[in-house]
Write a protein that binds this DNA or RNA. Structure first.
Length: 438
RNA sequence: GCCGCGGUAGUAUAGCCUGGACCAGUAUGCGGGCCUGUCAAGCCCGUGACCCGGGUUCAAAUCCCGGCCGCGGCGCCA
């Protein structure tokens, strides 16, 4: 492995000045002035200019430098010195190792790859992601997932790993992908829902999972993927679903507080830091109808929000509370899955909530129904067959604490954090209705 | 699933409505040349494209039909 990333070389610039250093990476740009040739070297951490100059660089090395093409992989050795470059330093090259050269012209220009259309970028993703603005997306995404693990681990949650091959399809109406499994048809998990609940009931009490989920809906939008990563939590012994919202809110507050750690990733995208106020507004669905009415948007009483409604509530949160986040609570029973706990006194409404981030739904959660008979009744009312969920019902026969949880869309959070126009940008290799390669 | 929009060099686009001066323009890349301080380096020369099939017409990148592919809105959801 190479000794130093470019960033580390630059950070130790004073100490390394005048000394021989080696930097390895891709040839980002070539500025050829004849007997003077500048290479901008790029690695995952940054860029650094190398100079090949007649009279300074050995002739043999200089002539090899003249053969180089962009996106070649090279190591340049030479002395580090101050220079009026963007980085403040440059390498005066004395040696050059060519590790790999392109065998054909590049289908995508790396420094400009965000200007290409998304299909082209995704087709040549290994080139696209070489662009620092693009790799920033995945660095941030990884950072968010890391924060999630760190945050909930510190609250005594246990990380779990549930099956992605499952026997039962529908739990929230979303279509599932069938898989041939030893001659039987099974499905790809659309959510860890049942199993994270089982883990709580199994005595783990507080659990979280970071894992893929699969949705077989043929949607054509900029905010849906057929495969994405879900950040799930589930926790026992809650008093109400407010406990769950507190946990979700705490996580987002943590993200906002620690965002300075990844400031430059946001800057790549010109993104504003996440605004999380002292208390994130919590609006019941019925209150949301009224707010939307003030914005001139009518939503049928007892119906779900549409994307326009969500966007308007996002504006409302920003204008009224200076908040990028807003909870919508007490969702109608008719639009929530059977395992959601209903309000005792108003069974048409539930203890289910969504969290909107900058006008897009990024989290869904709520209190779950833990009472066996109520659960059976909910199934019946949803018109679902008890035998299809018998394995799930079993969990509740031997002592299940009141519990609740939430699922958060990692790509959606990343997308909203950076202001991306299409969720596919937040997935290294997105799967949608047509795309299964690369 | 319903609806709308689109497919021009490697990439990104102009041209299409109002068919002919378009053997298709521009930028960038690519190939060649000049240049010892560039930093989106510059300058000169060159290279390379109308998705497929059918139709209308004297004439189709342009109009019509079908196919394939792509994009987006809604539904559904994270």
């Amino acid at each position: 492995m190479k000794d130093l990333l470019i960033r580390e070389v630059l950070a130790r610039g004073q100490e390394l000045e005048g000394k021989e250093v080696e930097a390895c990476g891709w040839v980002h740009r070539i500025r050829d002035l004849g007997a003077l040739r500048f290479l901008v070297l790029r690695d995952k951490s940054g860029t650094l200019q190398a100079v090949f100059k007649r009279g300074e660089t050995p002739q043999e090395v200089l002539s090899r430098a003249l053969e180089l093409r962009e996106e070649s992989v090279v190591c340049v050795k030479g002395s580090l010195r101050r220079a009026p470059t963007r980085e403040g330093y440059e390498i005066s090259a004395r040696d050059l190792r060519l590790l790999s050269a392109p065998v054909e012209p590049l289908p995508l220009e790396v420094p400009d790859s965000p200007k290409a259309t998304l299909p082209t970028r995704l087709k040549y993703r290994w080139l696209d992601v070489r662009n620092p603005k693009v790799s920033a997306i995945f660095k941030l995404k990884g950072w968010i997932a890391g924060k999630f693990r760190e945050h909930f681990s510190s609250l005594q949650f246990t990380e779990i790993f549930t099956p992605k091959i499952v026997a039962t399809g529908t739990e929230s109406g979303a279509d599932v992908f069938p898989v041939l499994y030893f001659g039987k048809t099974v499905y790809l998990a659309q959510s860890p829902q049942f199993y994270k609940q089982m883990a709580v009931i199994a005595g783990l009490e507080r659990v979280f999972e970071v894992g893929p989920v699969f949705r077989a809906e043929p949607h054509h939008t900029v905010r849906h993927l057929n495969e994405y990563h879900s950040l799930d939590i589930e926790v026992g012994f809650i008093e109400s679903y407010n406990d769950v919202m507190d946990l979700v809110e705490g996580f987002f507050r943590r993200l906002a507080q620690d965002l300075h750690e990844v400031r430059e990733l946001l800057e790549e995208h010109g993104a504003e830091p996440l605004q999380v106020p002292e208390r994130v507004p919590r609006l019941t669905m019925r209150q949301a109808y009224e707010v939307l009415a003030e914005y001139g948007k009518r939503v049928q009483y007892g119906e779900d929000l549409d994307p326009e409604g969500e966007r308007l509530l996002g504006s409302y949160a920003r204008e009224r509370y200076k908040s990028d986040l807003i909870f919508v609570t007490e969702y109608p029973w008719k639009v929530r899955p059977f395992y959601t706990m209903r309000k005792e006194e108003e069974p048409a409404w539930t203890y289910g909530f969504d969290l909107l981030m900058r006008g897009l739904e990024v989290v869904t959660g709520g209190q779950r129904e833990h009472r066996y008979e109520r659960l059976r009744q909910n199934l019946r009312e949803k018109g679902l067959r008890e035998e299809d969920f018998s394995f799930y019902l079993e969990f509740f026969k031997h002592g299940a604490p009141p519990h609740g949880g939430a699922g958060m869309g990692l790509e959606r959070i990343t997308m909203q954090m950076l202001g991306l126009q299409n969720i596919r940008e937040a997935r290294l290799l997105p799967r949608d209705t047509e795309r299964v390669t690369p």
